[in-house]
Nucleic acid binder design. Structure first.
Lengths: 350, 350
DNA sequence: TTGTAAGCGTTATCAA
DNA sequence: TTGATAACGCTTACAA
């Protein structure tokens, strides 16, 4: 038997209401109370009613920590995103949050100021015994292995692992980049310029690689490549650097994302007096909302990020349920949003 | 003594590594291991070394649930945001996340599809015994009271409670709106139009109230007010409705946020051939990044949201530390970003 | 400084 | 269907 119960004494902090208190109030055992809060348990309607009434009266809520201790499931899903991704794709987080809630789980959010902080973050992840994780940041193979070792299901978001087969949702960045280059080349562009994303962005790497690859295949002149960091300013700055290095306006500028494309476009039209797309084509990636605004109507590539986010949670759910489902990565295609900032070749009718 | 330790048997799931395992490996007691992981505990360097080595060898990480059970602190901070806020201010979430991490705590994220979902969400919040909460959503007075009753420190973000004195960071929406109206009126605008934010946005309400209030004070004609929902399309649509209702172009359109202002501006200039600001002024709220882009340069009001987010965490930290600090709300001023989409009166030199 | 032992609030097992 | 009772993995007096 319990020694003392709710001490409403004036002394210190009030004790928390526990299942014992409810049991006492309802005149049943503590384990009966526990069962009443477990969905498919065997309790008589009478007991159920008594307990629920007592629980409501006492404002009782089960303690997740205690439950997690014994069940070994925390109902927590870790979401790890680099700050960049977080800022540029708020919809992803929003979708993840909704879908995770739909599974009856909670979202434990970790953001990385620098991609190198991930070590510390993982330590916290282990402490909280999360049921699974969705990661949109670069993990070393060793770190990926640690997920496996600790039996924490993992789904990568737009990242892949070279060595291991890790469940992932990813969009064909390189393929999309190749498509864009092809269409621009067919339309007669020859001198390309690339305003690249930041060096620590895996997505940016793949996009650039795809472009360079396809340009080479087509036997076109080597493009001017300048660095950028995904923000508005670096789009305009990048364009100036390109023109400086090339000594003239290039035929086409492909930017690592839409924000830079918008920056590039604004600088071209409003500061340098370049006619887009007549004199120069501009394209971006992501089809973010602003890219469709009347003032821009950017030529860009759309990833089905909402779908990807939703599927990532679904995939994680399967992994959490059947402990051993050998889920591979699922791939998505980008679709070209033709916009009005680039001269594109007509496509042959299907 | 413990009955059985790590059963590496082929049978089921491998047991987790616990402090007992580490103790055994290091040849010390389990409590010694616990002490080694507590910052200011009294342990001899020799023991510390032995334990840490054993822990590293076994990949031991303390279990947060077990710790939370006894310490009564989960090191979890709940952040509750309505989906809208989440999408329009990704920086807020980013800043909150960083600052919360700096306190050594973790961010448990709850997003609301509809503001009415908050009841369910709170239930989860109680289960997880969070150490505190930052809420950017509408709470009823009853719900606010529940935080107090359960002794969970609460800081409101850009929301206030009519009845209770709840710690909050909030920006003077009405004051900002009044300022904007004043400056436009001084510059000679007489017929105003308002494209309002969604009905369930507290911030939108306050902005509109401030505008109406000041217009009335100034004895100006009643403005046309049309509904909007904070998105790009509703800016353009709103403008068309305004012109339809008024039978002509108004002198000034004030939009509930920058996105609608951008939508309004694009429609005005590119579809209706209205010269902004010569023929009509347009203004928004929030000073979101896009409002400063060369194509827009919107006249808008900037809230120090980064500062506000950072201060919200600070305020919460103080509440979590001293259990009874009677912290009031802290207020911030919006600053006018003059932009180029509105004709504003010159200010008298200070 | 170290070890012993008593919880923390649940769920799971097993008789009754 | 119910009620004892034993975990779960940790922190924290208290005694040595």
């Amino acid at each position: 038997m319990r020694k003392k119960l709710n001490n409403t004494g004036a002394g210190g902090a009030t004790r928390r209401v526990t299942s014992y208190d409810v049991a006492l109030a309802a005149g049943v055992s503590q384990s009966a109370v526990s069962r009443c809060f477990k969905p498919g348990a065997s309790v008589s309607p009478a007991t159920q009613a008594k307990v629920m009434q007592a629980a409501a009266a006492l404002d009782y809520i089960p303690n997740a920590a205690a439950r997690s201790l014994i069940t070994r499931r925390s109902n927590l899903v870790a979401v790890i995103v680099s700050n960049l991704a977080n800022l540029y794709y708020p919809q992803v987080l929003s979708e993840l949050s909704e879908q995770i809630a739909r599974l009856g789980k909670r979202l434990l959010l970790f953001t990385l100021e620098r991609e190198t902080d991930i070590g510390k973050v993982l330590c916290d992840v282990w402490q909280y015994q999360v049921d699974g994780a969705i990661v949109a940041a670069c993990l070393s193979d060793q770190q990926i292995a640690e997920f496996a070792r600790r039996e924490v299901p993992l789904v990568l978001f737009n990242r892949r692992s070279r060595e291991q087969a890790v469940p992932a949702v990813l969009c064909d960045q390189a393929e999309a980049a190749r498509l864009l280059v092809s269409r621009l080349a067919e339309a007669g562009h020859r001198q390309f310029a690339i305003i690249d994303g930041p060096g620590d962005s895996a997505v940016a790497q793949e996009r650039k690689a795809g472009m360079l690859d396809r340009l080479f295949e087509l036997g076109l002149p080597a493009p001017i490549v300048v660095g950028g960091n995904y923000d508005y300013a670096s789009g305009g700055l990048g364009l100036r650097k390109v023109i400086d290095r090339l000594g003239r306006v290039p035929d086409a500028v492909i930017c690592g994302n839409d924000i830079m494309a918008i920056g590039c476009l604004d600088t071209a039209r409003q500061q340098l007096g370049i006619a887009v797309p007549q004199q120069m084509s501009v394209a971006g990636f992501d089809a973010m909302e602003a890219s469709g605004w009347l003032s821009y109507n950017i030529t860009t590539l759309r990833q089905p990020i909402q779908q990807m986010a939703s599927d990532a949670v679904l995939m994680l759910d399967r992994l959490m349920a059947r402990c051993g489902g050998a889920a591979e990565g699922r791939r998505y295609r980008s679709s070209l949003v033709e916009g009005a900032t680039a001269r594109l070749a007509m496509m042959a009718a299907a």
